[in-house]
Design a binder for these strands. Sequence first.
DNA 1: CCTATACTTCGCCAAATATCGAAATGATAC
DNA 2: GTATCATTTCGATATTTGGCGAAGTATAGG
Lengths: 121, 121
Amino acid sequence: MRDVVAVVKALADENRLRALFALRLSELCLCQIIELLGLSPSTVSRHMSILKQARLVESRKDGRWIYYRQAGDNAAPLVRGALDWVSRSLKGGKETAKDVRQLKNILKTNPETLCKRQRKN
Amino acid sequence: MRDVVAVVKALADENRLRALFALRLSELCLCQIIELLGLSPSTVSRHMSILKQARLVESRKDGRWIYYRQAGDNAAPLVRGALDWVSRSLKGGKETAKDVRQLKNILKTNPETLCKRQRKN
DNA sequence: CCTATACTTCGCCAAATATCGAAATGATAC
DNA sequence: GTATCATTTCGATATTTGGCGAAGTATAGG
């Protein structure tokens, strides 16, 4: 029950759902997710930590960058089921389509440039 | 997206998950759910209203009683998927098993007696 | 080392939420 | 009608949550 509650609570936020859905397409470093959501680094970091705690995402460190990705196929059925449900439910939505478009742009820029631009603001 | 958020937020509470899972077995009137959760009538009523708003449960009125049940097979895929995930994820859990046992006892008593007993406290 | 940098943690505030008891609602039964 | 009863709505309160900026951590590169 604890795990289930952790997972649904992790999903129970629009920004976390958007981030999670974005990770379906590609792994992303934090600054890319920051760019997508338009929130402060600390807030996005916190969101990702909640998703990680619930085992919905994993991360790998590459130098100064931390790349997040959705949990893999080997994840617990609880998690696997949640991710599949989110994908099926969000796919085709209007806001989702907009995020996908923006994400494609974000992926064109390399993370370094992205972070630099963010620091200016 | 709005619908998805409504559904996950509705699921993001342990007591609502317990109520929802209990409804998998049988339709229940409010006082039976009150008995199961051990919360005040107003609180449980509010929980059920949130689940209804998200279309996860439906209700029918029978005299003074209102019976709640899980959304049927004709429900939107979004809802159907969520209910199936909850069932699969909670089935076999320890707290869940306890609830099932208690629920069986609750179903032995008729609702009228149950309500009367609750009014005493 | 020292600086810059990508990210995290902490302290704070505002908004949302869970809970209760009291009052309101709507239906039954006398 | 009046009383009773199952449920809902309202008002108040306590807790949780989402958000930010400032300070902290860890790593790359001079």
